[in-house]
Write a protein that binds this DNA or RNA. Structure first.
Lengths: 201, 201
DNA sequence: GTTGAAACGCAGACCTA
DNA sequence: TAGGTCTGCGTTTCAAC
């Protein structure tokens, strides 16, 4: 697959913040035209990078069952089966499969008998052991490339908003909250580089 | 807080499927005008039910660090601290706090030393024990009220699409893929009810 | 809640490098 | 092949009801 460039990543960050943001809005952020942004987003969907645009709900306000976190020690031969079953199971919201065959999932179950619901959900003979705990709070923060979208100014540490600036300095892309932070950073960088060159001689 | 009605839930389901769906589209689904839908969505955001519109990314295509699932047995006094710290930590994507004080989170860490990164992330003296496992696959299915948005027809089990129907029968809301399924279900329900009344006499 | 009018955003056709 | 511009159409918003 084609590599994503910085513009793609920036678009994904902006969509993670607000997926309903107009393309014209995004296009201003990334210095592109609106149709160009639309094209890139189409491509990201086709490539499977974007799975869907969706909504992050505060489930605690919805009171739809008891949220539980279940950890299954699955018999190695059945890991794929169990994953596929749980993936399509209605009450399952989050599903993690670890390299060692543990399957952890977050689901909302009817409050009656959790053990009985687990039986309905999957064949417990495929499982060596399981553990259920009630979930008090569950949160989700969409991140792009592990960096999160809450960028920090490389100069002052403040949050970088839409008014921020970006610059490639010494091969690395830095984000700044404003042009003066960018200016100060560049000055410092130039001075450091001049010092390094002086010491080389 | 005001209770959500069925229309609100249906709107949330539609947004969970595709958050960029036009309001006019949603309004046709729920037999309301577009401004009415817009008003309801505004209200849902204000009430905190909708936290944000966002994008579900296939992180495996983004290769941004090593995904790990970490389970912390946190000393009871520090559970809130640890939760707040992790909530705002950049690499943390999912965060679950159980009623018994276990904190489980999913994060993408630089592949060097995971132990060192954990040290940076939180004060390990607040933790009795921890366990890290590499995550092979992580998936997320947005659900509304624990039912998920992939509704099944109560009569034939097929997936209910936009062309489906809903009906409240005997106090419960059922979903159907088409009007004939609804009709058959009602017939059966009436017959069962008649039988139950007969046996009462 | 609805309706209608004005502002806005979007998709497509077409053009440029 | 990626992006820019223009334009018609659909969508959103806002006021009036």
């Amino acid at each position: 697959m084609r590599n994503l460039d910085e513009t793609d990543l920036r678009i994904l960050e902006l969509l993670a913040e607000d997926a309903r943001r107009p393309f014209s809005d995004i296009s201003a952020e990334v210095d592109l035209s609106a149709p160009a942004v639309s094209d890139r987003i189409d491509r990201l969907r086709e490539e499977g990078v974007i799975r869907r645009f969706t909504v992050d709900l505060d489930q605690s306000t919805l009171s739809g069952g008891t949220p539980v976190l279940v950890r299954l020690a699955v018999r190695p031969a059945f890991v794929d089966d169990v994953r596929d079953t749980l993936r399509d199971a209605e009450p399952v919201e989050h599903l993690f499969v670890s390299a060692d065959g543990d399957v952890t999932f977050h689901a909302r179950l009817g409050s009656d008998s959790i053990r009985a619901e687990l039986h309905e959900l999957l064949d417990l003979s495929t499982v060596r052991d399981y553990e259920v705990s009630l979930v008090e709070s569950a949160e989700w923060t969409p991140t792009v490339n592990g960096t999160g979208f809450a960028l920090e100014c490389a100069e002052c540490g403040n949050t970088v908003t839409s008014e921020g600036e970006r610059a490639r300095i010494g091969g690395t892309l830095y984000h700044f909250c404003c042009s003066s932070c960018l200016g100060r950073f560049e000055d410092r960088y130039d001075r450091l580089e001049a010092g390094a060159q002086a010491s080389e001689n």
